[in-house]
Design a protein around this nucleic acid. Structure first.
Lengths: 360, 360
DNA sequence: ACAGCAATGATATACGAATATCATTCGCTC
DNA sequence: GAGCGAATGATATTCGTATATCATTGCTGT
């Protein structure tokens, strides 16, 4: 670790005996500068360890070569894939990623977006459509490209890259019904503040209703669940229900517990559709640990398709999401726009894939 | 998405009918400004959607309130934990994280470090001690705090937060020997360009040698493996060896294949020590899929302890690394230094924990 | 010898905010 | 009404880089 202030272009000019403009030209318009002079500049730069101050450059050029990215969490392989996809695509164009983790809080998201704007980010990529009012306002004021990822809806601020969560969930539900499962439970995360979770729930409900399997809407609960809490507080019996919302949808343990409580309940389901992959893995482990046969005793379906899913003792039937591709495409759209290309796509559907394996 | 240029302080001053300095003071030295005036400024700021330009601010203050972080990969839960730990600790101080993924390439790392410096990052956090010459030079010239994480060595550029990989690996090896395993294989990733992998290998070798189990050093191979390739090209028989290096140490499939090839080899090991957790999971799946009893037929040990490890059908014996804590501590050290605190620790050992479960 | 060009230099301004210095206005008190 | 402090304003400079305009130097070809 050194000390003192940074080396500036001026320092280079003094050290090389050249004028400031010549040094500047050597870097920005090299064709105007003699090869020997360029070489001398280069040598001096290396001697002094000069690194251009992009902050100052950005002030002039009004471009920062950074784009801001918000993901809900990082410790989910899928969002990590998304982030890596973005970073990879940006890297080729020498653009840096400012990454913020919202922990699914719209306030944290708004804060991140504000900081991105303050840092003159050239573009912003967020996950999902669930924003606070202030965040939506900020985005509306933002002068660069914006991509909302991970879902498809008509309410986009600018551009969208994702897949149809509702349709994906519906398709899996149809498959389960077609396979003959009749008592299908769905386990999801908090539906409020999460358009994806809500759309997955709705896709499930659509199909169930169409098939004549009633699922009383008042039991579609989120966490915290005031309705259920009130019923319990009044000593009333909580009606058995196949839609379960778990506090933390990203842990194995949540899935394990959700599965066990469903199986211990009064109306044992014959299939459980998890709206996230990790808890589905947890449920699978719970079954393995307790000698419950999958899919014999109960079928399991997941959502997300991590690499482990195909390698489990009972490979998991699930929905594959091209997470990395979403990131890459989103970054590409942004880059095209930054490079002045006309708006080609406002919405890009990357699709999903039903991965039918052995668990259901 | 809006259009046109960003709103500046000057726009606020014009719109509010106040002078530029008054508006500036209202934000930076509010005690000098009448409450009513402050309110008016605030109102105008909200009306116009003014967001301060941190780029300009940082040019003056010579602080960017960003710190640069390099991780090898993001799709490993442990490094995601590290990054989240850092981001969390920084968030409280309103500092942003610039995240770069090196993919274990020292050149990409150097590039990232250079960009961080160019962006006037206030501090830099990298993973490991394996740097290119140019990167080391850049870091030496850097004027802010630097933390190298994930390992402990004496060669730190500035500060270190991590655990002793060599010791951790040695301890697991001792445990395996004490348990009576005698034919212990080690499966690791590329040892070159990775101080952590090399230290883990060496910790293993230390203990094996002490115990009188010879492990010929010429068979400690990395990928690509010119020595082995040459032997094969010459038609010579490759000696059976218990140290296996796998091409991509971060996948389940690598672990699966490494395990199967060890078991199909001439000298079946009775224990396999994986230097990363994911391939250990893959190996476990391979055993489950092929009816191989763990630890009956072969014992498995991992390194890293992901949440799945404890929930596997045969819970995995492994080494727990406080990844999030490393991130938090590294960020804290950096923040202390940025806030002018004297240098307390140059090296912080966060330790590790041997998690003895059923697989070994 | 002079036009023409390549290479370099001098000078000024801009980007958006922070800040230092000095000036002005208003209301208050003694 | 002189003096004082609070509140506000005017003006200039700084941060590091980019760039526009104009000037200078040296060399080439005719």
């Amino acid at each position: 670790m050194g000390s003192g202030r940074n080396v500036t272009l001026k320092d280079v000019s003094v050290a090389s005996g050249l004028s400031l403009i010549t040094v500047s030209r050597a870097l920005r318009q090299p064709e105007l500068v003699h090869a020997d002079t360029r070489a001398k500049v280069q040598r001096t730069i290396e001697e002094l360890g000069y690194v251009p101050n992009l902050t100052a450059r950005s002030l002039v050029s009004n471009r920062s070569n950074m784009i801001g990215v918000v993901v809900p969490i990082l410790t989910s392989s899928l969002f990590a894939d998304l982030a890596q996809g973005i970073a990879g695509a940006l890297h080729e164009e020498n653009i840096q990623m400012l990454l913020a983790v919202s922990q699914r809080s719209v306030d944290l998201e708004a804060e991140a977006v504000k900081t991105f704007m303050a840092r003159q980010a050239d573009a912003i990529i967020v996950t999902g459509f669930t924003h606070s009012e202030s965040c939506r306002k900020l985005l509306t004021n933002f002068t660069g490209p914006i991509v909302e990822t991970w879902n498809l809806r008509n309410e986009a601020v600018d551009m969208t890259v994702g897949y149809d969560n509702r349709k994906a969930s519906a398709e899996m539900t149809k498959y389960l019904l077609a396979k003959g499962y009749s008592r299908i439970a769905m386990v999801g995360g908090a539906f409020e503040n999460n358009d994806q979770a809500a759309d997955r729930r709705d896709g499930f409900l659509d199909v169930m209703r169409e098939a004549g399997r009633s699922v009383p809407p008042e039991y579609i609960v989120s966490v915290p669940n005031p309705k259920l809490d009130a019923m319990r507080a009044e000593g009333r019996e909580v009606p058995p229900e196949y839609i379960v919302s778990i506090p933390n949808p990203t842990t194995l343990e949540s899935g394990w517990r959700a599965m066990m409580s469903l199986l211990e309940g009064p109306q044992k389901p014959d299939a459980v559709f998890f709206q996230a992959e990790i808890p589905a893995h947890g449920a699978m482990m719970a079954c393995l640990a307790n000698g419950i046969s999958v899919p014999g005793d109960v079928a399991i379906a997941g959502f997300g398709d991590l690499s482990l899913s195909a390698m489990l003792p009972v490979p998991l039937t699930t929905i594959k999401i091209p997470a990395r591709e979403i990131g890459e495409r989103a970054a590409q759209l942004v880059l095209e726009r930054l490079n002045g290309a006309p708006v080609q796509h406002r919405t890009l559907d990357v699709g999903f894939e039903l991965m039918i394996r052995e668990s259901a």
